[in-house]
Computed example of a mutant assay.
Amino acid sequence: MSEQKLEIFNVLNFLNSGYELEDILKEGNFGTFPSAEDCINYLVENGYLSGEGETISAESISKKYTVAQLKELLKENGLKVSGKKQELVERLLPVLGESSGDYELTEKAKEFIEENQWIDLYMFALVAFRFDDYETYVKASAEDDVQTALKFCDEIISRALMSNQFLVFIDALSAKAHVYAYDGDYESFLDYDLQRFILGLNPIMDLDAQTYASYDIINAANVINLKNVTERFNFGSLKKRFDQIWAKSHIKSITVPKKTSYKFLQKALSGADIEELNFDLREKYFNKKYGI
């Protein structure tokens, strides 16, 4: 039921934000519903949507989409893209289900969205962690949504440190940064994303062979976040902030020296190829240290 609750919230929340139902259903992943049409039927039957939907026919799909657009929609839904236009239309028909028609959110739907706003924060910052676990944590918390999320991240960080789970630790650090961003605290977002970059180059736990094999020393998403926030806001000298975060990180075993780490940060923010940077880091620092 928890996964279904997540899917229902996302559909209703997007509708409440002004998106068209047809567009939401085309983009969505409905793991607990066989099809988009089943999702709509559930929402109507359970009192979340009211009104009548206009059934989409093969003819209406054929008129609305070009062959290229049909193939793109099929590709997005993991379906074959070969064949004539009519074949593409027939293949896509079950996916599109029903259009938005005259459906409207009911009061029940609006109350559901209001009561479960914490899911919006989960989707923004915490999707690296199990929804069921976070839902249980939320139910037991007396804090507001942001404080609950921050404490959840702190507990994961603490457990990861004790159990030597470096990738979980890094994910929780990144998640905490995003919780601050969700709350509009972009300075804290920058600090935690900087720490994620620094500790990415200087793991504070031993990496076993399996972890090391799948580990991106410089994470592309992390670099994009840092680039966006430093371009959008002026929080003073990045070098000075980098030095402060380095000091707070209490790195006992340095893998990449501080000056070199900052140079790699500058290169990454300047648009250097991340794969090449990671290759250089592995060759010069990581392979020797971890005996690979």
Rank of each mutant, 00 (worst) to 15 (best):
F233W: 08
D145R: 14
A175Y: 04
F169Y: 14
I204L: 08
D133F: 04
V168S: 08
R159H: 14
Y215F: 15
V179D: 00
L167P: 01
K288L: 09
S57W: 02
I292P: 04
N234E: 08
S2N: 14
E115P: 01
E155N: 14
F33T: 15
V95K: 08
R241N: 05
K259H: 09
E90S: 14
A128V: 02
K248C: 08
E283V: 05
Q4C: 02
N16Q: 12
F169R: 03
L79P: 11
Q117N: 11
D171E: 13
T148S: 06
L226F: 02
L194Y: 08
F33E: 03
A68C: 01
K284S: 03
D102V: 10
E20T: 11
D133P: 06
I113K: 03
I156V: 12
D102C: 12
L105W: 12
A175H: 06
F279Y: 01
Q147W: 10
E114Q: 15
K176L: 02
Q147E: 10
D208E: 10
L79E: 13
Q117V: 04
K63D: 05
S57K: 13
N13R: 12
G83R: 09
V223H: 07
A160K: 11
G78P: 07
Y42L: 08
E52C: 07
M162T: 02
D145V: 08
I254T: 12
G83T: 05
N222Y: 08
E76K: 11
D132W: 06
I251Q: 14
R232D: 00
I217A: 05
E45I: 10
Q244S: 09
F197S: 01
I157W: 01
K288Q: 04
I217K: 11
L21I: 06
E72H: 10
L74H: 02
F233I: 02
K108I: 07
L105K: 14
E187M: 06
D243R: 14
E37G: 15
Q266F: 00
Y42E: 01
L190G: 09
M1S: 09
V11Q: 05
S253T: 15
A142K: 15
R241H: 00
G101A: 07
W246R: 10
D191K: 06
S174K: 12
S158D: 14
D208T: 08
V44T: 08
K263D: 04
R91G: 01
D216L: 12
T211L: 03
S100D: 13
S158Y: 11
D145A: 11
G236Y: 00
D145H: 13
Q195C: 11
D280L: 15
K176T: 03
S62V: 00
A177R: 00
K240G: 13
K139N: 09
F169L: 09
Y186S: 03
E87H: 06
Y137P: 03
V223M: 02
L126P: 08
N46C: 10
I156H: 01
L93D: 10
V81P: 09
V146P: 13
K85R: 05
E7D: 05
L207S: 06
E3A: 11
A109C: 10
A175P: 07
T255A: 07
K151W: 01
E98D: 00
E115M: 13
G53H: 06
C39H: 07
E283L: 11
F197P: 02
E107K: 14
H178A: 07
L49E: 08
S2C: 05
